[in-house]
Nucleic acid binder design. Structure first.
Lengths: 199, 199
DNA sequence: GTTTAGCTGTACCGATCGGTATAAATCAGA
DNA sequence: TCTGATTTATACCGATCGGTACAGCTAAAC
């Protein structure tokens, strides 16, 4: 556990475990057997179960932001990037088949009981919203995204839809239905060629 | 604890506690002090902590369906009913200021570990979707809801948006932003007076 | 007043929780 | 090969978990 590479590996495994089973649902015994090291080493490296959890949460934040940013960057234009990013996150749940969104799970399980965790979660959502907002602004400048709603609200709307989809994913909603919901959500970005007045 | 009225009262208080703190976050000691009775009485009335939780989950299911059905019924037409129901659920979180959606919390906390709870959650979402679907079908017949997407998909989309909003509620998203997201979500039902072709 | 049936509350059960003291083992340097 | 320092693993800590045995109290029956 001394070398840094092993620490990274252990952190990644801890993230997977916390992601699947939650904070309270993951015991130190599970962690040690999954990490392949004994408890004293874990405590020497991470300090406590809670600190390990917070580190995993930060790791997740970075992971999600990197993935989304990557999908947005490699698309030919802003709108195509939004399409692929949203479709992937809503219909497939990120890139792996893990359970829901770790930040969401954390927010729901710990609530107000762990202010540090809640701060990281809130920051994760804020950063995600910011990434989308900037891309939406590009799309609005390109003319591929509607401009009659602010990029702020549209970005919040997208994050809202993603988080809802992550919930439905855990309740085993059908994939076909979720694909269509994703398409519907994305169509919200369409230009209002001639839209009825909204109340 | 013998009379039925006391059982109902205790069940309601248990629901509140589980709702706030989750299954694992609620100990039997908390339950007994909140319910005002001692442990043997709780076990005599409900059997176990898990059974009490399942009963609370069923109670919640009934509560939500009654509230939504009520809002839909007392509106002048289908579209107005959908507007008020969605707006209330997305912007205010039901009727009280409790934390998130109990069914969602349950799905995320317990996951696959409690099949019975998961079945109730899935059934709750299915019932909610059905209520919306029927109302959307009425709206489509009335001509107040778009008909180029199936009522099935639109209903699933609404539930998706509601659940997302319940998450954002727990991460302390701003109320103004959530109001606008709700308005945006509702505008999805608008008639496509002249909509651009969707890919 | 005495007895008896039923309920309430206390006190306790084994298991498991997160965390740590301590002993065994490993390995570098000479 | 011997020594000494650091990492490893075992064994244990008090606290708390869900659940229950049992004693003590209440109250109706006679």
């Amino acid at each position: 556990m001394a070398r840094k590479i092993e620490r990274e590996e252990a952190l990644d495994r801890a993230l997977t475990l916390f992601w699947d089973r939650g904070y309270r649902g993951t015991s130190m015994d599970m962690l040690t057997s999954t990490l392949g090291v004994e408890k004293p080493s874990v405590y020497a490296s991470f300090g406590s179960k809670q600190k390990l959890y917070l580190e995993a949460l930060l790791q997740y934040r970075q992971l999600v932001l990197d993935i989304v940013q990557g999908m947005l960057d490699e698309a030919p234009d802003a709108r195509a990037g939004l399409d692929s990013a949203i479709r992937k996150m809503m219909a497939r749940g990120g890139r792996t088949e893990r359970k829901g969104c770790f930040a969401t799970n954390s927010a729901l399980e710990l609530g107000d009981e762990d202010p540090e965790a809640q701060a990281i979660v809130r920051d994760t959502f804020a950063a995600l919203t910011t990434v989308f907002r900037k891309t939406i602004q590009r799309g609005q400048a390109e003319g591929t995204v509607r401009s009659d709603w602010s990029a702020d609200v549209l970005a919040q709307y997208l994050v809202n839809g993603i988080e809802g989809a992550r919930i439905m994913e855990r309740t085993k909603a059908s994939n076909r239905a979720m694909d269509q919901v994703a398409a519907l959500t994305l169509s919200m970005l369409d230009l209002p060629t001639q839209q009825a007045a909204r109340g």
